[in-house]
């Protein structure tokens, strides 16, 4: 075929894009299966797997017993026999019973066996806050898993990325934590549904897909300050950049997309251009991914910096009651405050 396949562009929200991506992955590869609590007949508590049980049946959309460690542990066993389980952990705060399986087994089996065994399990987690939920339903867990070698940690911010990246995560030979910004499930956007399939069906598609999933995206170009974010914070940074522009500050927004690994090439190119960086995430600032980025920027772009790298994020406390969450979470005001502070240098 010489002509390019016509782009199949559809409007979807982010949750719907994940649903469509899962469907496409399951149609592409009969070894892909979904497991989790309430993902079958109910379609998941956020309805992300809606309709898949009906179309693919009990054997490929599996309602599991209510035990997160058992879910991830049995998924590892299935992966050892050549299946690609996509596991749903119902809420971020419920992943901890599976922490051992994820960090001591899933992350390490490839290394432990010198590559003889691969465990390409994808763990989908609706994560982060902002939806007025009760305790344990709003947590940002990315640093805990990015700290563990052997795992990839990614988070889409747009319907297009949600659609592409879930399929790339499934195709990747490595285990992937796929963090879904639950407050953005209803964000709408245009999705080209053809491109990622072409990538995956090409020779070396899984490697290319893994590499692409690990790259950052310049979400908005600017020249005075770089806003670094992923998942739920990307939209917030774009809003902040819009307001900063009204104040004659040109902010560049980088959607990191991948937390493990970070795409430092894109980050450093931006920071070297702007000389200022603000990292925004919902997770507590202390010992977080913002600290890691700040340190790496400091090591690699120190003489390009006009100001210290600032961090905007959650506080060193358990996630508060939902009536407090909008003061706990980064906001446009707090991002602009940080922008003001770096611009003062």
């Amino acid at each position: 075929m010489t002509a390019e396949a016509p782009a199949a562009v559809r409007s979807m929200n982010l949750g719907g894009a994940i649903n469509a991506g899962l469907r496409a992955a399951m149609e592409r590869d009969p070894k892909v299966l979904l497991m989790g609590e309430d993902i079958g007949q109910l379609g998941g508590v956020f309805r992300v797997t809606d309709g898949l049980w009906k179309d693919f049946g009990d054997h490929r959309v599996i309602d599991t017993p209510l035990a997160e460690s058992g879910i991830v542990g049995t998924a590892i066993g299935m992966a050892l026999r050549g299946y690609t389980p996509v596991v749903e952990i119902q809420f971020d705060g419920f992943i901890f019973p599976a922490f051992n399986q994820i960090t001591t087994q899933l992350a390490k089996l490839h290394y432990r066996t010198k590559g003889k065994l691969s465990v390409p399990v994808v763990i989908r987690v609706p994560f982060a806050g902002g939806i007025g939920a009760v305790e344990h339903h709003s947590e940002s867990i990315e640093a805990l898993f990015a700290h563990t070698a052997g795992l990839r940690v990614v988070s889409p911010a747009t319907p297009q990325d949600a659609y592409d990246m879930i399929q790339q995560a499934i195709a990747s030979p490595d285990p992937v934590l796929f963090l879904e910004p639950k407050a953005r499930y209803w964000d709408k956007g245009e999705v080209d549904t053809a491109r990622v399939g072409t990538q995956l069906e090409a020779v070396g598609g899984a490697q290319a897909a893994t590499a692409e999933m690990s790259r950052a995206r310049v979400a908005r170009e600017g020249k005075d300050v770089t806003l670094l974010a992923y998942g739920p914070s990307v939209r917030l940074c774009l809003q902040s950049a819009e307001l900063a522009a009204a104040d004659s500050v040109s902010a560049e927004v980088i959607d990191l997309r991948s937390v493990s690994p970070f795409d430092m090439e894109t980050v450093l190119a931006s920071v070297k251009k702007t000389g200022r960086a603000v990292v925004v995430h919902e997770a507590p600032v202390a010992f977080g991914t913002g600290g890691e980025l700040a340190a790496r920027i400091g090591e690699k772009a120190f003489f390009h910096l006009h100001a210290p790298v600032m961090r905007v994020g959650g506080f060193h406390m358990p996630y508060p009651g939902s009536k407090f969450e909008h003061d706990y979470l980064p906001s446009v005001d707090r991002i602009l405050d940080a922008v003001d502070r770096v611009m003062a240098h």
Binding site: G73, A75, L80, N100
Partner: peptide, 27 residues
């Protein structure tokens, strides 16, 4: 090589391989 011998690698975290065995058996 676990595949060549049909014997998974030793697991030191006590009991962590039990769910792996079940998933493998389901498969």
């Amino acid at each position: 090589d676990p595949t060549a011998y049909g014997v998974h690698t030793y697991t030191l975290v006590i009991g962590a391989h039990a769910p792996h065995a079940v998933g493998y058996a389901q498969a």
